[in-house]
Design a binder for these strands. Structure first.
Lengths: 326, 326
DNA sequence: CTGAAAGCGCTTACAG
DNA sequence: CTGAAAGCGCTTACAG
């Protein structure tokens, strides 16, 4: 019932399956008369023929899918936008983007073997064995954790470092000397948070500021208020938050303590989520140029497909969105 | 290089591929000695054998994937959590959840044919022809837009209606008679918004309240402030927002107008996103019991797989999270 | 310019 | 209890 195969199209068009395949996959090496091409295409369209991806995958060894592996937690609008733009960049070449939220329960291998993707893009770290196995299977593996967009799990990711640096430089430029870091309580966020904090630490050192005071801040007003009190006791006035959500919690803590931003303390987030501008006061934050990153990622995938040289890295594309909180 | 096939496992274990297949797919109809089973399983593990999903899909007609189709816009933490829990519920049965953000650019048919999933779950409406084609191909198609979790594009979705109803009932119970509805400016949200607003309208009628005053509110303070002014001119004091993001904008508008919630006007959102409790004032909102919905969805998929009767619908599982904004 | 045929790696009646 | 063989639908050398 599923239906129409290339054999049907061949019979209807009065040619062989070979010819159908050549016409439809667009192999221009083989010369087939324009008339024949037209007829085959017309028949395929008329019958509603769509090649079986399973058969094609079995034959060629891979599907036309790009698999994106996300961590097992909500990723927020920034990554969502990135995926969206990535899908845009790849769809023109017949590649579809599929997203998988990593579960601890099932081995990753089951998934990529099932999908046999053209490329796997990791937004969460891979186990070394998974990485190797995928490479061995001829799958292009990209990560977004490292500078080179290659999973390199030991080096701190340059972009993440740069984010922390930008936060501190802005706070320092506003005259803040004692910096606090609002660390996310969600343990799953550790990978990113570690590198961003490292960026904060290094920049404090570079600017001759004292060590930043790191305090965990959950998405809870009382907890955040407690952290704000602790920071104030240590004369911390410049606060860098892991991301906008955490920054929003800090802002709530500041209000709960009847203090005000940016007078009593300044807060800088990361991501520029849509609600950042709606905060009280509107949140100053570090924005990542998602479009740029998405296009770069798409270009990397396509370059590998075409066997041409990798495009050069477009840079982090970070910039500070200055509002009223810092 | 990709490597190990069932033939390798068969040779190493000294049995036929048939036996390997029987052991590994766990067909207990056929009786195979425990000793043989053990040996095959041990060999497969030792060689790191993973069956080719493409071959299996070609043979059986479907993969072990469940494809979730999302609209082409960020969906927010609620849907993300739902997907997460859905994956949990299905992974025990060897099913992996894959997510695709709908692009206007490529026909949906290309994707589901490529994936040949066991089930497709739609978080966005399908075209009728896609729906029919998938059903014809033997794919179970579920939607989350309708009560029955079946795509039924003409009927307003009961859950969405119930959300709007709950918002109005809460506002009415607080003494608000003139209700305003904050409509999202993002056009892509129309499907959900329409039904929620309908729920608001009907409930206003049921309670003998005047027609709600619908105003578009983007995620922008100035725009929201303008809307708040307009509502006040019409003596609207109870505000139902499409979702928490829009509600946060309304709250920002209220502050910009130097008014206060819930004294001057009350605001109710939808979703209970993590930052809702961090708003100023903390946002009263309608929460959907995501866990319940996810388990129901998983159960629907599995029931179809097992050929048993559908589980009964668990109800909307909506409840109001009362904070300070209303 | 076009076609007959092999083979990708599975699963599953069917025959022992 | 186990194996030989067909066939899922494609692509692609190879032969005309």
């Amino acid at each position: 019932m599923t239906g129409i195969t290339s054999a049907d199209v061949a019979r209807e068009s009065g040619v062989s399956r070979t010819t159908v395949s050549y016409v439809l996959t667009g192999r221009n090496g083989v010369s087939i008369s324009e008339e024949t091409r037209r007829r085959v295409r017309e028949t395929a369209a008329r019958l509603g023929y769509a090649p079986s991806a399973a058969a094609r995958a079995l034959r060629t060894g891979h599907s036309d899918l790009v698999l994106c592996i996300l961590p097992d937690r909500p990723v927020g609008p920034v990554i969502e936008t990135l995926l969206d733009e990535l899908a845009d960049g790849l769809s023109g070449r017949g590649l579809s983007v599929l997203v998988h939220h990593r579960r601890a329960t099932r081995p990753l291998a089951d998934l990529w073997r099932a999908v046999t993707p053209r490329a796997v893009i990791g937004f969460a770290p891979f186990a070394d064995e998974d990485l190797l196995a995928m490479r061995r299977a001829g799958i292009q593996v990209l990560g977004t954790l490292g500078e080179e967009c290659e999973p390199d799990l030991d080096l701190p990711a340059e972009s993440q470092l740069a984010i922390g640096a930008l936060q501190v430089r802005h706070l320092a430029a506003r005259g803040h000397r004692r910096i606090g870091y609002a660390w996310p309580t969600d343990l799953r966020l550790g990978v990113f948070a570690r590198d961003r904090l490292l960026g904060v630490r290094r920049t404090c050192a570079d600017l001759d500021l004292p060590e930043p005071v790191v305090l965990p801040v959950g998405l809870d007003v009382l907890e955040a208020a407690k952290a704000v009190r602790d920071w104030r006791e240590q004369d911390v006035t410049g606060l860098a938050a892991y991301n906008d959500d955490v920054a929003l919690a800090v802002l709530a803590g500041v209000r709960a303590e009847r203090l005000s931003c940016p007078d009593d303390c300044a807060v800088v987030g990361v991501d520029d989520v849509p609600v950042a501008r709606l905060a009280s006061p509107p949140l100053t934050t570090v924005s990542q140029s998602i479009g740029v990153q998405a296009r770069y990622l798409a270009a990397l995938v396509l370059a590998d497909l075409d066997g041409v040289a990798k495009p050069s890295h477009p840079g982090h594309g970070l910039h500070l969105v200055e509002r009223e909180s810092a």
